[in-house]
Design a binder for these strands. Sequence first.
DNA 1: CCAAAAGTGTTAACGCTACACCCATGT
DNA 2: ACATGGGTGTAGCGTTAACACTTTTGG
Lengths: 248, 248
Amino acid sequence: MLLCVYNTHSKNNMPNKLYKKIAKSTKKHPSKQNIKIAVDNCIFTVINDKLYILLIQMKKKPYTNKWALPGGLIGDKETSHNAALRILNEQTAVSDVYLEQLFTFDRPDRDPFGRVVSVAHFALIPNRGINLRTISKYADVKWQRVSDLPKLAYDHDEIVKYAKKRLAWKIKYTNVVWSLLPEKFTFTELQNVYETILGKRLDRRNFRKKFLALKLIKSTGKKVMRGVHRPAMTYQFKSREAKIVDIL
Amino acid sequence: MLLCVYNTHSKNNMPNKLYKKIAKSTKKHPSKQNIKIAVDNCIFTVINDKLYILLIQMKKKPYTNKWALPGGLIGDKETSHNAALRILNEQTAVSDVYLEQLFTFDRPDRDPFGRVVSVAHFALIPNRGINLRTISKYADVKWQRVSDLPKLAYDHDEIVKYAKKRLAWKIKYTNVVWSLLPEKFTFTELQNVYETILGKRLDRRNFRKKFLALKLIKSTGKKVMRGVHRPAMTYQFKSREAKIVDIL
DNA sequence: CCAAAAGTGTTAACGCTACACCCATGT
DNA sequence: ACATGGGTGTAGCGTTAACACTTTTGG
């Protein structure tokens, strides 16, 4: 099942005729404003019950070999949402993604190459055998444990900090967990995601009770072995769409 | 955050098609970007227990005489926050203001004059004898009841809709109410703000109990007459800073 | 038999909701 | 005296948090 999540602010009504009209009339804004606008993605996933974000390694000075969030300028006819999807696709080729606008970072000195305002985005993807690919612009790409982040380029430390907060909130008050999990998962796996993100242990019985009461997931009827012990029932989400539900 | 979820297996898989189109047309990073960046303010206040927002009346075509949110381009060395403050000041001359970034609206066709991305801001100000002033750029300025809004220019309807949601959330889960109230206020006034914003009536005793338990406000010791009935105690906030507290 | 995680209920404390009567004032 | 909003307490209910033993498997 392929899934794209769009927020309502990036409506899909962008007829090409309109682009042309816009292109023709762009001189009507008198200002000599010289600011570029970009997108940076904070992409989370869970691998072996640990939380990771995607980092790229930069080539250009003064950030040579520094790690940073993947990003890039927005196209003239592109929404920031689509720019974020495009950039996400450059590294991951995933399609099953939860994506939302995070915050716009605009300190005038945040980019040494000139004034660039960044519309940071926040993505959650399940770790289903994603093949990372490095594009020529970057030296490398990798998944980095969130609990062990290096100092990042630009103001990306700040963006990640903000994104972590948003993630903790999201997971508590919405059902976005589905976007971090494989299609079938055990209750322990589900709980581990919560414990990792919230940074605290939860009572197994209470967690199970509460989560089942939300009626978001159903048993698949199949059990799975996850080690030398009793097999665990697997579950799946009944529906994969964004909802606001008070979870924990 | 409002979300639309599209399943690409379904018949009407607009997003996926659109995504591919965009991905193709903007594959390479745009070297020369022609996008302006602006700020729009959604400024709330409470007057006589009713919720209002500040609107300006436009002069230029095609929006002549239409109402809109006050806004303007960001200066080359200015943060969007400061731009929002500057613009707020053009109309209101208030200093006691709660201001935060709301969302970045970036539909390519949102501005008929050219591509302008707007970092919408959200402001709450107390109604302490604010004198509105119209600047020459606009035909007029006014406070407009939120329950009775005209159709606005650009995508400002959408911005206001989003801001109203954010306000309802903020008032429930943080202590920002202080920014909508005068220094001293009665419990009924406080409750009226909540009822107006949440759009429902609240039980007087429970509201009082709950709010007092938060220990955010204290009695001033002075009573005030608000009509032909028993005088009411006035209260004030102990501290006027942003906190997250579960209120209602 | 042992280790290791899966699975399962009950109780006590707390918080929330619902609800009705007296008080202080100006006319 | 009366109309108007100000001010107050309690009881029932539902939700949450704390807590321990049995089951299933592979080695």
